[in-house]
Amino acid sequence: MIRVILPPHLRTLAKVEREVSVSVSSPVTQRSVLDAVEKEYPMLLGTMRDRRTGKRRPLVRFFACEEDLSNESPDADLPERVVKGEEPFMVVGAMAGG
């Protein structure tokens, strides 16, 4: 199972706690993980990435294993520790404001 940490606003929408787990068959990538999250929690469709293009929303970031993966290819393999469930894949609201 892949562990996913959602930001507070999306936890409220999905009515879940901080961390959820989703089943993802290989390859484990940003795209396959987000597909699984959106399948399990369809109310999150469109909140992390564009529904049609799949493009990440501008103020959403993806972190894992202390790395910012936001600008990596959505089809790149995620770190092995995420695949093994040792580390979570994190969906983060970007630091923005003033």
Binding site: H9, L10, L13, M43, T47, L59, V60, G93, A94
Partner: peptide, 8 residues
């Protein structure tokens, strides 16, 4: 709505 996660 919001700038981060769009419209619901």
């Amino acid at each position: 709505s919001g700038g981060w996660f769009g419209q619901v």
